[in-house]
Design a protein around this nucleic acid. Structure first.
Lengths: 202, 202
DNA sequence: ATAGCACTTGACCGACCGGTCATCTATTTT
DNA sequence: AAAATAGATGACCGGTCGGTCAAGTGCTAT
């Protein structure tokens, strides 16, 4: 059982790295198996299809994300607005490290996969969408607290949270297209300037 | 010559639609040929490779873009700030129309291709990057004029312009992931709230 | 001891991929 | 009229793709 978990884990992390570094379509199962030192038959013992592997990778990454630097960034102990900066910083350092290692900025795995396969696979699309919603919820909490504590004038916290997530994804997209993590550092902090006003009842 | 131009044009527009609606890797040359009613040999008479086709599609789209609704949106006759709203509106209606036709939101072709192949093809990456820079220049002009006319307090127009483009791309990414063009309408207008201050000399 | 089971192995499969090419057709050039 | 040229045709190619499978291996539970 130990060996099996290990094998499955090895497939998962390898696939994650390869998908993130290139793309879903560009990485074949053969390559994943070679890199992970697993036989093809073994691969199909653990994953019924490449598509299922993709879903597992997404879930795996979402877990790591949620319990990793997203949890750190949105730590309740931090002042709400600082959480935004923390998040931007975390993205910056991560992308920079990845670029130093591989020479290329991988961007956001979720954003990448969303644009690549969400038009073809409704289930995967919904999965990534759910992850985005969760991420947006973190922003939402922070904004609510910021308003509550008077650090920010009242605003539509829900919509603004989503807008901030969109901005972050957009910044990562642009940075990846320039292959330059510094874009994240330059543009990232402006996330705090984004505002969507409350709908005035009329 | 007339026939040839026609054939080439047919390949180009078909490929554009298919790449935009799905992805680069997902669309084969065979499919493009069938859809465009062109024989495979004919295809390779006009394009040396699939990659060259991709570049031609990118250039084609960039042209249409620059002379189409981007030109309209950033019309010098419009008040600078209205141009931003015009651009957002144009994206919204375009995406909505596309979704009504095909059932799925295609997003931005450049954003899609950037995330899909920019890690694999340096030339294509640079090409898309150049297009983004051009688009950002339009935002920059508008911001410069807005500041000049006193519609906006002074700010780092260059960085803010890039940030606005990033935001727009991010909004499209999120909308595509939700498969809901309304996201563009809801979040889009907040593009005007983005600000990056001038670096204070010290 | 043995039966069962999780896991491994690697040869194998048909389909499809991007791309080639000899051959044909129609138009233009001389 | 002949030659040259641009374009069209579709059979064909090697390679790779995702996926299958029968035969093994080694641990575990009875």
């Amino acid at each position: 059982m130990n060996i099996a978990v290990d094998t499955k884990e090895r497939i998962l992390t390898t696939a994650r790295e390869l998908f993130h570094g290139r793309s879903y379509a560009d990485v074949g199962i053969k390559e994943i198996c070679t890199e992970a030192q697993v036989q093809k038959g073994s691969f199909y013992h653990f994953f019924p299809s490449k598509r299922d592997l993709a879903m597992a990778v997404i879930d795996d990454m979402a877990d790591d994300w949620a319990h990793g630097f997203v949890a750190e960034a949105f730590d309740e102990a931090l002042p709400p607005i600082e959480r935004l900066d923390y998040m931007v910083d975390a993205v910056y350092y991560w992308q920079k490290a990845a670029k130093n290692l591989e020479g290329r900025m991988p961007g956001c795995l979720f954003g990448n996969l969303a644009l690549e396969i969400s038009t073809r696979d409704e289930v995967i699309r919904a999965r990534i969408n759910a992850i985005f919603t969760k991420a947006s919820d973190r922003f939402h909490e922070a904004l609510e607290q910021a308003v509550e504590q008077g650090d920010m004038p009242p605003l539509d916290t829900q919509a603004t949270a989503t807008a901030m997530l969109a901005y972050l994804e957009g910044v990562i997209l642009l940075a990846k297209t320039r292959n330059d993590p510094e874009v994240v550092r330059e543009l990232g902090p402006a996330i705090k300037s984004i505002r969507i006003e409350l709908k005035t009842p009329n």
